[in-house]
Nucleic acid binder design. Structure first.
Lengths: 236, 236
DNA sequence: CCGCCTATTTGGTATAACCAAATACTTCCA
DNA sequence: TGGAAGTATTTGGTTATACCAAATAGGCGG
């Protein structure tokens, strides 16, 4: 074919667009493997190099999943895919001074909004989900590893209450990105109990249908958590 | 070199990691061009194929910027880079049923939190920034194109008040992603005036330092905006 | 019918070559 | 001498071919 640099710009992009379309329209089904590189180069009349480039772009966009020696697998993107896509860049952001702080601040903001919402709109089911998570948390006070898990679970409930599939993914992102700064902190039963009490305070404010109190309790809780992080890592 | 498939996994990844490190440590300076592909293949003792693959990966991660026929330019990632990275995937998400709704809901949530914060903590400067944006908005009521701009500007102020660099980027993301569903709506001076009044109501609630009223006004405003979108596009 | 062994497919990498745009260099004229 | 025009070199984009090693498919024998 030897059409070097003709028309408008890069060649792999056309293939990307074509495959992207096939994924969107369902011609390429989620979970199925992509056609082999040799097939694709025939189908589009291009060299294997370009095919590989296109596949790689799709991989970067999260539309296919490539394992070292396997056929690429089509993956219709969900919210998690989106978040996974930026994880790399976020890693760099967190390296910058104040990066962690900025991220954590947005988390406080979002979760504050969520507990307000919970205080206002939580259904009976939401309440019992919260209560269950809280009980699990209490019972794990003496097992710091388990406490961390149940802690995360408790907070996760708020991100689920909204019934908006974006938010749970956001929470997973927060926990993933902040985990390195969180898990290496000294975790003692004493501290666990204190955190549990904070959770309990939030829960009770929600029971009372008091958004202001709930937000206040949440902010206090997370501010303290931040203080712990600061105490462990210094200025970051 | 011909060391095919040795050790753990793909070879381009090593180059990516190496270059990634050089970018982070500043050996490769932001804004400067990357070494040429031929140089890199000597430096790392790899084929040009692999070099190109690596560069492309970096491009996918947003660490370098590649224009069709130019040297790749190093780009230390900022928040905007991160958001740009997921834009592709988000495009797919918005295609799914309810995708736009879900995204818009999170925007309402975030901005509601921001106006609350503004009502509580806005400085004199913040207030005057808001007032300025509001005035600009009022004067554009008869110019729908300009009104859209000033509308966006007004909302942007809230995302700036926090002094957290993540939030303005988030706002840019929201406007970018939702713009297609927003700009094609019928825009009449009548409607503009109505939106301006909504902005004014929010502003006044902030002046009164009344978070609840501010949030309420914001939610009403955005709910109406959503209703307009629905009326234009049907169920999405 | 199941397990082992071989043949083929398929992704990963290398090499060589070519094109066209971009850049560097030289030359020539005012 | 300075700048413009023209030429040579660099450099990214692409094709083609070949080889390796892992993964899968196929066949063979127990």
């Amino acid at each position: 074919m030897v059409k070097t640099g003709t028309s408008a710009g890069r060649a792999a992009d056309q293939i990307v667009r074509a495959l992207e379309g096939k994924i969107r329209t369902g011609q390429l089904v989620d979970g199925n493997p992509l056609p082999s590189e040799r097939e694709l180069m025939e189908e589009f009349n291009i060299s294997r190099t370009v095919v590989r480039e296109a596949v790689q772009m799709l991989s970067g966009k999260g539309l296919v999943e490539t394992r070292p020696r396997f056929r690429p697998v089509v993956r219709k993107p969900g919210v998690d895919t989106a978040i996974e896509t930026i994880s790399g860049v976020v890693g760099h952001l967190l390296d910058q001074p104040g990066g962690v702080r900025n991220l954590f601040e947005t988390r406080i903001m979002v979760e504050a909004a969520l507990v307000r919402q919970a205080a206002k709109d939580a259904t009976r089911d939401d309440i019992s989900a919260l209560k269950y998570a809280l009980d699990e948390n209490r019972m794990a006070i003496n097992d710091s590893e388990l406490f961390y898990l149940t802690d995360t679970q408790f907070h996760a409930v708020f991100f689920n209450i909204s019934r908006n599939p974006v938010l749970p993914a956001v929470q997973r992102a927060y926990t993933t990105w902040l985990a390195p700064h969180w898990m290496r902190m000294p975790r003692l039963p004493d501290r666990n109990r204190r955190n549990f009490e904070a959770h309990k305070a939030i829960f009770e404010a929600i029971l009372m249908r008091d958004p202001d109190a709930a937000e206040e309790a949440l902010r206090t809780h997370l501010a303290e958590a931040w203080a712990q992080v600061r105490a462990t890592f210094g200025d970051i």
